[in-house]
Design a protein around this nucleic acid. Structure first.
Lengths: 342, 342
DNA sequence: TTGTAAGCGTTATCAG
DNA sequence: CTGATAACGCTTACAA
């Protein structure tokens, strides 16, 4: 348990340096074949495993990427974030990198990022996730914080900022692509089911939404915008409540497939049909949209691809810290069976 | 960028030791109030962040837990694993621990575990996840591998093994609880939709299944067992194909809600109704079951709770390495609207 | 209240 | 082919 290079070296009767060099490069000709065998045997018997921390300290390289998620709510619960993470991990693991998730316990995104970074020196780089509900000033502070580490990093799904950094952005336009589709299908009274009201993302989407209504000459009706927290319960409740007082809408445009599925359930529970009475459109092209009955028309945002690309940007930056690129991903409308012409 | 304690010390004009001690314990009376201010200022200006690797090396404690998942397929894609992870992270983050995910690229679970552990020395402990498709001999080897690290660890959702280790097990009985429910409702021709055929988990479930049929005096019909890979496409295809040749079943018992949702879609596509013509039962009590139409009767396995408990076991072991406990979690049947009496 | 020095396990340099 | 030795950044006696 926890045998060190030194112990192996002692047992074999050589120096720790030789053991290290051989173990890290079995083809080395520094060590004779016989010695190699002895080292292998000793390493096996003593259950040698390289100490990540000692090795990283010495090499000035850790092959560890810090994942910075500006929140302290439990991770791995959100489909969207999981898909982003999956892409990141796929790319990074392919290149032999480990992923490190830090704990934090603050109440603001700003503090959480600070806390997660506080003891993180030694990581080769970072990926900063957006939680979607950071206001812009926090986002800028978070990025500043990352810059201060002096290590390469990439931001993922963080609203576009003027700084020259590695960014993968899911185009804001895509957020209202669903709305556009509904408008083109002739819908005019459309209920918008959005995310958390005060995040920068939602502010952007909201302004696009207003702009688009204006272009189409449709008067603004603030009752037709529902903010939520992306959960099923919340969405089901709010849409249900909405439908008790108003039945004049012909379509619902949701910011996630999950929320669209919840809206679908709420509509069905009133006895109305989809897409007969009400059309519904989702976003993400997740399994929820595929499994819904009827299957939901949605926007494929290539989420896990976004994660993969952010990791690639980071890797490039690791090789050449001076480069920094922006990638903007476009969504693709996936037409299924939840939208009718109006 | 990357300022060290020494640099701070130099700037303030004191020793690195004082800086270290103060930064790790702001209440120390080793350092005068004035010096504290200077250290704070210098740390701020130089963007000091503690080097995790140096610190861990020195302390012999890293506050990092290695997550060992015996596969090299992309992580964070599987709802079940994500829920387990979520529970683990929630508990561990609460105690200030970071999570480390290692890369691996082998073709067997055995090799993947070896690879993930190879450079992992320095972690305070590990959590071993089951992927559900390891055969028993691999499982035992994996556990042996963990034991050889000499560090505390807990296994999560790994079939029960005789070794005295920290284990959180989701009771095998629960796997066939759904079947039992269907039998009690009078169903006799029941299609079983299982996971990967060669994993230890499935072998256990299979034998329970056979036993139960025997108890109920129902003849074994091997065509009524479908193995799959837990994906929607696969399940939809196999259930659809099954239904083209046979319509005599009255119920489907699935090993996951996702597969149950896929089966539901397949059944509906034939024109049959659920639960009118065919009853369906799922497993996990995930959102898929809630959102399905009709909502699916399912088994709540407290998955994220299992993850949380495994982390607790590990934490206890960290305090007192000599203890080791088994926790067996029971499932709970959640009755919704996808099962009729037959 | 502070400094000095040894040590954590590994790697890299240099000399042989 | 191999061994010393210094260094990585931080922590912790111990000494003052």
């Amino acid at each position: 348990m926890g045998a060190s290079l030194k112990e192996i070296a002692e047992r074999v009767g050589i120096s720790a340096a030789s053991v290290s060099i051989y173990l890290n490069n079995p083809d080395t000709n520094r060590v004779s074949a016989g010695t190699k065998d002895k080292i292998d045997k000793a390493a096996e018997e003593l259950n040698y495993r390289r100490n990540l921390f000692a090795s990283s300290l010495s090499r000035h390289v850790s092959k560890v990427i810090g994942i910075i998620i500006p929140t302290n709510i439990p991770l791995f619960q959100n489909v969207y974030t999981n898909m982003l993470l999956s892409g990141v991990q796929k790319c990074l693991a392919g290149e032999g990198y480990s992923l490190l998730f830090f704990p934090s316990s603050a109440s603001t995104s700003k503090e959480n990022v600070r806390e997660q970074l506080r003891h993180s020196a030694g990581c080769d780089g970072y990926i900063l996730f957006s939680t979607g509900f950071c206001p812009m000033d926090h986002i800028l502070l978070n990025i500043r914080e990352l810059q201060d580490t002096g290590k390469p990093f990439a931001t993922l799904n963080v609203p576009k900022v003027p700084e020259t950094i590695n960014q993968v952005i899911i185009d804001d336009l895509e957020s209202v692509r669903g709305l556009e589709f509904l408008l083109n299908a002739g819908h005019k009274k459309i209920l918008m089911v959005l995310g958390r009201q005060h995040g920068e993302h939602m502010q952007l989407i909201l302004s696009k939404y207003r702009l688009m209504l204006k272009e189409w000459g449709i008067p603004l009706d603030n009752d037709l915008v529902i903010f939520g927290n992306y959960s099923h319960e919340d969405t089901y409740l709010k849409v249900s409540r909405f439908l008790t007082s108003r039945r004049d809408i012909t379509a619902i445009c949701c910011m996630s497939d999950l929320m669209a599925s919840s809206a679908l359930a709420a509509v069905k529970s009133t006895g109305m049909t989809v897409p007969g009475d009400i059309s519904i459109i989702g976003r993400n092209n997740s399994l929820y949209a595929v499994l819904a009955d009827p299957p939901l028309t949605t926007i494929d945002l290539s989420i896990s691809e976004a994660g993969f690309k952010a990791a690639q940007l980071l890797l490039d930056s690791l090789e050449n810290p001076s480069i920094s690129r922006n990638i903007i991903l476009n969504g693709k409308l996936i037409e299924r069976s939840s939208v009718n012409e109006n």
